[in-house]
Simulated scan of single mutants.
Amino acid sequence: MKWLLPGDPSMQYPNKLTPLDFDGWIQERGLYFTGDVDSHYRKLFEMHDKGSGPLDGSTIVCDYGKGKYVYSSLDFFRELPAGVPGAFRLFVNLLAKPATADK
């Protein structure tokens, strides 16, 4: 797991995320990562399995109007029922409105 944009608002608000938030994730972290992405999107992570090349399309975010558009192929459907704290923290951040009033 490599953080591409640790200072991104989606990584900072309302929860300041750290690499420890990915500890305890069960099974695979995600499936069906996106490939080509429009330059308006920000790629938050890069990850790979042993013996595979890096993939950076697991979670992408784009500001849109007063909100944002998020695509994530992380397996929240496994992590949230398992009670993984970091998954809850990231999920809330991805849903949260921007921290500044002018966005």
Score class of each variant (00 low, 15 high):
L90D: 10
V92Q: 08
P9N: 04
K16H: 14
R78K: 13
F45C: 05
E28K: 00
E46A: 15
E46H: 02
G57W: 07
L4I: 12
V92K: 03
L74I: 15
K68F: 04
P14W: 01
V84M: 01
T18L: 00
L20I: 02
L44N: 04
G53W: 03
F22M: 12
L90S: 10
K97H: 11
K68M: 07
S73M: 05
S52W: 09
K2N: 12
L4F: 05
F91M: 13
G35A: 12
P85V: 10
I26E: 11
D75F: 00
K68V: 08
G65Y: 02
V37K: 07
L31W: 09
P98E: 09
E46W: 03
G86P: 10
L94F: 00
D102S: 13
A82M: 06
R78L: 15
L95T: 05
D8K: 04
T100E: 14
H48Y: 12
M47K: 02
L95G: 11
R89I: 08
Q27R: 13
I60D: 01
V92P: 01
F91Q: 03
T100P: 01
G67R: 03
D56P: 03
D36H: 11
S10F: 00
G65I: 01
W25F: 14
Y64S: 12
L5R: 14
G7N: 15
I26W: 01
Q12Y: 03
G65H: 04
L94S: 08
Q12E: 13
K16G: 03
Y71S: 12
H40Q: 12
S73N: 06
P85G: 10
N15D: 09
E46M: 14
F22E: 06
R29V: 13
K103Q: 14
S73Q: 12
P54L: 09
P9Q: 11
K50M: 02
F77N: 14
S73T: 13
D102H: 14
G35K: 11
P19G: 08
Y32R: 10
G35M: 05
L95P: 05
K43H: 14
W25H: 10
